[in-house]
């Protein structure tokens, strides 16, 4: 019974976190889902509830990063970037961080407090399209008008007559 009570308490006190990470590019494409699954499993093993996540994707880094693993200095110009958003009790997040620190697959990771709502989608459609559409429409309307050949012929005749 006391265990159950603790769980309830931790649920009510849970905080939304986001873990963004860079995985070493030495991981093969085929092994990526395995690594991704391991990260998810690790997070859920700490009693977290996963809200949203994204598969790690290969990206070019904005600058070269270094990481020393087993006394070898590795330089990285590319990495797999992925993120996972989850709800977790604030007492367990430090334990998760300590576990992630030991993982050699990570180049870097970042744990942030965030909000439950989706923070990326629907933003990009706001500006770009509303500004471009009227411009693309106006030339289309202009080209549609001079299709009537008879009217053009009449206008030309009228001009010649003058």
């Amino acid at each position: 019974m006391p265990e159950n009570e603790n769980e309830i308490v931790s649920e009510t006190n849970s905080q939304i976190y986001e873990l963004g990470y860079l995985l070493a590019p030495s991981i093969k494409e085929e092994d990526l889902p395995v690594n991704y699954g391991n990260i998810k499993e690790l997070v859920t093993s700490f009693g977290a509830e996963v809200i949203a996540d994204e598969m790690p994707k290969m990206i070019g880094l904005a600058y070269a990063m270094q990481k020393v693993t087993s006394n070898v200095r590795n330089k990285f110009n590319t990495a797999y970037f992925g993120w996972i958003k989850f709800a977790m009790g604030p007492d367990k997040i430090l334990e998760l961080k300590k576990r992630l620190d030991l993982d050699p697959n990570f180049i870097r990771f970042l744990i942030l407090k965030t909000v439950k709502e989706n923070t990326i989608a629907a933003k990009r459609f706001v500006r770009g399209e509303t500004y471009r559409r009227p411009r693309s429409k106006s030339p289309a309307n202009e080209t549609a008008v001079p299709i009537n050949k008879e009217e053009i012929d009449k206008e030309i005749d009228a001009l010649i007559a003058v």
Binding site: G20, L112, V115, T119, I120, K123, V126, R127
Partner: peptide, 14 residues
């Protein structure tokens, strides 16, 4: 203006 309440670090384009 674009009704963005939480500025996300992943939204590099913005």
């Amino acid at each position: 203006a674009n009704n963005i309440k939480y500025i996300d670090y992943k939204d590099v384009e913005i």
